[in-house]
Design a binder for these strands. Sequence first.
DNA 1: GTCTATAGCGTGATAGAC
DNA 2: GTCTATCACGCTATAGAC
Lengths: 226, 226
Amino acid sequence: VSARSAVISNKARASGVRRSTRNGRRPLSGAEEGHARLLSAAAELFRRTGYSASTTRELAGSLGIRSASLYYHIGKKEDLLYEICVDGLERIRTLVLAELAGIDDPLERIRVLVRVHTTTALADMDEHYTMLVEMKSLAARRRRKVTELRDQYEKVVRDVISFGQTSGAIRTDVRAKYLALALLDLLNWPIFWFRPGKQLDAEELGELFASIFIDGALNRPGRPSR
Amino acid sequence: VSARSAVISNKARASGVRRSTRNGRRPLSGAEEGHARLLSAAAELFRRTGYSASTTRELAGSLGIRSASLYYHIGKKEDLLYEICVDGLERIRTLVLAELAGIDDPLERIRVLVRVHTTTALADMDEHYTMLVEMKSLAARRRRKVTELRDQYEKVVRDVISFGQTSGAIRTDVRAKYLALALLDLLNWPIFWFRPGKQLDAEELGELFASIFIDGALNRPGRPSR
DNA sequence: GTCTATAGCGTGATAGAC
DNA sequence: GTCTATCACGCTATAGAC
C-alpha cells in the first residue's frame, strides 16, 4: 500500500537477520526500524541544510557509515526525499481522518483537525518541513504524485470547513476555499519557527490556533481577560 | 545605508556608461536598474529550483550572458542571496512603517499592516520566498544579520498587536507574541501557493485575511451570509 | 561588459573485497 | 551490510582576450 515498496532497494528487501556492527549501531536494513532511522536522519539533514546542499557523505556520517553503504539501502538520494514526502502526507491524512471519524459537531471537527494536524506536524517536523519546502527538488513525475497527495489532504481540510458552513456554525461570507487556505497557513507555518520545549507545547499551540481561527483576535465582552 | 554597497563588485561600481550589447539586451551594470534585473532574475531562479540547486550558468542564461560575465557584477553567488534577503526585509519594514505613520485606530493599524504586508510580499514573491526559505544557505555571519532584520520586522508586527491589546480592541487572553505569530503565519504562507491572476488579487486577499484574523471564522448574527 | 577556456574541487554513484 | 577506491561529471570561480 505504501509507496515505499516501490523505492526500497531489492538488495535490502532480500536480506534478513539483524546483528550489530563494530561501531555499536544496529544495522540499517532488515527491519522497518532501520529504514525509519535512515528516513528520519535524512529528513533532519534536509531540513537543516536543504535537500540539494545535503551530501550523501554527511547523511551517512550521521548514521555512522560511509556514503557508499547508503546505496545498499536506497537506489538514489532522491528516493529518500520522495519517501519522506509520501510517508508524511499519508500519515497525517490517515491520522486526521481516523480522529475525525466519530465526531459530528462541526466546530468540534475543526478543533480536532487543528489538534491532530498540529501535534502530528510538529512531532514529525523534519519530515513535514522537508515535504513542504523541498518537494520542488523531485523529478517531475514524483513531484506530481506528491502534489496529488497534498491536494487530497487539503480537500479533507476544505470539507471540514464546508461542513461547518452548511451546518451554520461557520461564516459563509468567505468561501470555504479561502477559509481552508487561511487555516492551513496557520497550521503549516509553525514548523518554520516552532522549537520544542519553549513554553508552549504542540497541544497548547493547537488549542491557541483553533481559538484564534474560530473566534478571531477581536476583544469581545464575556471573554476572560487573563 | 543599504547593505548592497558592501557587496556590489568594485569593478561594476567603477564603470559607467550604458549601451546595448549585441543580443539586444541592455548591459547589467552601470545603473541601479541593471543590478535590480540581476537580483530579480536570481530570486526567480532561487525560488523555482532552490538556491543550492541553482547554477550560475542558468542564471546567466536567463539574462542572456555567460556565467563568467556574472562575476563582473558580483563577488560570488552567495552575494545575490544575501542581497535578496536584506533588500526584501528592509523594503517591507520601511513600507509598513511608512503606511502606519499617521494611523491611530488600533484595528485600522492591523488592517493597514495586513494590507501593506500582503501586497508587498506578493508583489515581490520571489524575493520573499527566497528570503524565508533559502536563508539557511547563507554563511553564519550573514545568516545572523538577516535573522536580526527579520526579528526587527517581527517586532513591528508584535507592537501593532500589543497596541491593540492595551487599547482594548484586541483580546488579551492570548499573549501578543502568539497573536503576532498567528498573524505572521497568515501573512507569510500565501507566497507558497498564491498565483497571480487567479480570482483574488493581493489586495482582496489582504482584506480577507484581516477579516479572518480579527473576526474569526465563527458565524455570528448580523454578518452578511453572502 | 562580455567572451572563451579552464583550473580545482566536491558530488552522486558504482565495483568489488570482506 | 559495510568497507575502500575511484570514476565521471558539473559546479563555482578565475585568467586573460577583446
